[in-house]
């Protein structure tokens, strides 16, 4: 395997409390190779989003990353970056699609203005150059360039989500973090978007950190999967192994809680 694009070592994150601290992430270590689609699964509160935020240092107090933790992006420790370096690092190396990302567009700005914002700030592009680049980026996600003049409310949810992804790809990041990117969309649109991401990462070569609690979906799109339980990474393996021969008891129980579309229905015992 070539040098990993993201390497997390002994990551410990606490939420500081008045009386006691809550350890949300417990000694987590994993790598993501360039171009790899890595899935992180677990239920709400297991710490998966906390990790996502920490990777681009977007975590806020009371979250505190403990000393001894390492987050290396392309060999550089993100936790060591000063303010200016961090500004250059975010979006250029690691871009993030948030959960409800379709609501993260500014409702009073046109799509073009939101592209310009990123392209001007990070690359100093002029309006004209930014418009051209934005049109190219929209084409990547199958949106006609005439939508640049539209406002977010004039686009459907799936379209807005694809626009956010296009903005994320504006600076050719090495890693795209997607935190439950399609939870608010219905299955047909969800499939279209993930197919699109899969094609783009193969063409452009970025890696993906994909976070969801939908294990079935995750197995379909990911190369490797990590399963989290109460802040710990309990199992990491390639997607098919996680599906066909899960090792950890919790992974097995997660599978047992997913109803099936065809064949024998699961019959979990009461209280499972």
């Amino acid at each position: 395997m070539s040098a990993p694009v993201l390497s997390i070592r002994n990551l410990n994150i606490d939420y500081i409390g008045a009386e006691a601290n809550f350890r949300a992430v417990k000694d987590v270590s994993f790598d993501i190779a360039p171009g790899e689609f890595f899935g992180l699964a677990g239920e709400s509160g297991c710490g998966k989003s906390t990790i996502a935020f920490a990777v681009s240092r977007l975590h806020r107090p009371p979250a505190l990353i403990r000393t001894g933790s390492e987050i290396l992006v392309d060999g550089r420790d993100v936790l060591e970056l000063d303010k200016d370096a961090l500004r250059r690092f975010r979006w250029r190396e690691v871009a993030m699609v948030f959960q409800s990302a379709m609501n993260s567009l500014n409702p009073v700005l046109t799509i073009e203005a939101q592209f310009y914002d990123v392209l001007h700030t990070h690359k100093g592009m002029s309006r004209e150059a930014a418009r051209e680049r934005a049109a190219e980026l929209l084409k990547l996600v199958d949106i006609p360039p005439d939508r640049l003049a539209a406002y977010p409310h004039q686009c459907s949810g799936g379209m807005r989500q694809r626009i956010v992804i296009a903005i994320c790809l504006a600076l050719n990041p090495k890693l795209l973090i997607m935190d439950e990117p399609t939870t608010a969309l219905d299955v047909v649109v969800q499939r279209e978007i993930l197919q699109r991401i899969d094609v783009l990462r193969k063409r452009l070569g970025f890696a993906v950190l994909f976070i969801t609690h939908d294990l079935g979906l995750m197995v379909q799109v990911s190369d490797r999967i990590g399963i989290m339980l109460e802040g710990e990474l309990v199992e990491v393996n390639d997607a098919q192994t996680i599906y066909r021969s899960p090792q950890h008891d919790y992974t097995k129980r997660l599978w047992a809680s997913m109803p099936k579309l065809h064949g024998d229905q699961i019959r979990p015992e009461a209280g499972a």
Partner: peptide, 17 residues
């Protein structure tokens, strides 16, 4: 059929459209 094909199913890997 379209709806069912889009339901996440770990037995089928996503292919490009």
């Amino acid at each position: 059929r379209l709806l069912l094909a889009a339901v996440p199913d770990p037995d089928r890997r996503f292919d490009a459209a």
